[in-house]
Write a protein that binds this DNA or RNA. Structure first.
Length: 440
RNA sequence: GACCCUAUCGUCCAGUGGCCUAGGACACCGCCCUUUCACGGCGGAUACACGGGUUCGAAUCCCGUUAGGGUCGCCA
């Protein structure tokens, strides 16, 4: 039987990193085994759900690089994939339970009568766990339907997992204690339960379940904050799972191939933004320029950078790429390349341009560079060093004023690369501008 | 409170009886590389919760204690 897994979020307007990791693990497992990954929306609380809340889920999953085989926009043979549209199916199973005498009314609501036996859960991550369900005080009969006819999570979740032919239920450990109740439902419905795999929780720095108020608990935070999707997917995959060989910098494809439920550990993990940040820098550093460009574009649009054509943009991105840690920082890194009226950072100007002799050096360098035939990094470097030697000073005496003159700032890409990309015309003009501005 | 899960550096992850005077990564602290900032390199500091067993031998197995987390909803 081919593997079928699912991610079943509720449209709350928020995609939690824990939920994202659950989705990822289900997706990895399905893909690894040539199975099917299903997206099901648990929107029984229909009144509260808005279109925007659904989109947050779709966009978040797509951003991470997950595609679902069945579900909203994808179709599939076991729909509808919204619980709000599956009422007839629930009625059918409800009637079956009723016919078997498993249900009774309590204050207008309907409860499922527990068989009151010990339920053994064979969990792929946690092992064999026996739950003694005999005491009704500690394990009260669960409600499956409210007086208004609406359904309770446990019931619809189980019914859908049956109807959608799920083979593996991979979900957060917060559901482990609910599992024996679910198993009772499967048995009452005459269906063999799927395989369960409960994955450890993600905690905040206080050691509590990561919640909405915690920074970095939402995928939106990473999208807006300039993280590469592959970095976030890489990081959250490492929470509770590892390839067991100390490798950490992994592409989505690699994780998918390496993934195994047996390698999931049982300890809950504390979310560490620092490490996610580091991994982001690593992915940015090692990805292709085309990928980097694609990811940078939205941030450039948003910042209103007039970068012109992609061909003009890429050489600039190429030289800042090794330095960038957040995509959202790119506009600041490259803004002056596309704006001749760039401002001068006061501190940088004081240090490099207002020093005695600085403008003289700049003028000497400008004259020397004007004569460079081959406007490339190596030739420019050679010429600058030669000029410094001619005047008997250290190269830094030329490098620093030049950097601040052409960019307005003390920090940036390598000077020679920057000069090469800027081109002769602009470099010479910018040096003139600096000399004029600080010469008075 | 009952039930369930967990317990290795501050954090994440290795380690499933001897190869561990416990390894990797982030963060931190030095040094080097680089006349920017990064990247990179080298080095440092920091952990097997505690107590009992089992064993020739335990981070690894068992029991207990303690601590943390989760579930006990007519939320999902």
């Amino acid at each position: 039987m081919s593997v079928r897994t699912r991610f079943a979020p509720s449209p709350t307007g928020y995609l939690h990193v824990g939920g994202a990791r659950t989705a990822l693990f289900n997706w990895f497992f399905a893909r690894k085994h040539g199975g099917t990954f299903i997206l099901r929306i648990e929107d029984t609380d229909a009144a509260r759900n808005t279109d925007a809340a659904y989109d947050v889920i779709y966009q978040g999953l797509r951003w991470l690089g997950l595609q679902w085989d069945e579900g909203p926009h994808a179709g599939g043979g076991y729909g509808p994939y919204f619980q709000s549209e599956r009422n007839a199916i629930y009625e059918k199973h409800f009637a079956a339970l009723e016919a078997k005498g498993c249900l009774y009314e309590d204050g207008g609501a309907i409860r499922f009568r527990s068989p009151r036996r010990t339920v053994v859960v064979e969990d792929l991550v946690c092992g064999r766990i026996a739950f003694d369900m005999s005491n009704p005080v500690t394990h009260p009969d669960m409600t499956i339907r409210r007086p208004d006819g609406s359904w309770i999570f446990h019931f619809v979740n189980v019914v859908d997992d049956i109807e959608m032919r799920l083979t593996h239920v991979i979900r957060g450990e917060d559901h482990l204690s609910n599992t024996p109740k679910h198993v009772e439902l499967y048995e009452a419905l005459g269906v063999k339960p799927p395989h369960f795999a409960h994955i450890p929780l993600i905690l905040n720095h206080e050691g509590k379940k990561l919640s909405k108020r915690d920074g970095g608990s939402s995928i939106t935070y990473f999208i807006d904050g300039g993280y590469a999707p592959e970095a976030v997917a890489n990081y959250i995959s490492l929470l509770g799972w590892s390839p067991k060989d100390n490798r950490e910098f992994l592409a989505l494809d690699e994780i998918r191939e390496l993934f195994a439920l047996e390698n999931i550990n049982r300890r809950s993990a504390i979310f560490d933004l620092d490490k996610c940040f580091w991994l982001n820098g690593q992915h940015l550093l090692h990805m292709s320029l085309d990928r980097f460009t694609d990811l940078a574009l939205p941030f450039l649009e948003k910042a209103g950078i007039a970068y012109g054509a992609r061909e003009a943009l890429q050489p600039v991105l190429a030289i800042v790429k090794p330095k960038v840690k957040h995509l959202s920082d790119i506009p600041d890194w490259i803004g002056y390349f596309f704006d001749d009226a760039y401002p001068f950072d006061p501190a940088a100007a004081d240090k490099a341009l207002r020093k005695p002799g600085a403008l003289e050096r700049l003028a000497q360098l400008k004259e020397a560079l004007a004569g460079v035939g081959d406007w490339t990094h190596p030739a420019l470097e050679e010429k600058l060093k030669e000029t410094a030697a001619t005047h008997g000073v250290k190269t830094g005496e030329f490098i620093h004023p030049a950097r601040v003159a052409v960019s307005g700032r003390a920090v940036g890409p390598g000077l020679y690369e920057m000069l090469e990309v800027l081109g002769r015309e602009r470099v010479l003009a910018r040096m003139d501008r600096a000399i004029a501005e600080f010469g008075a």
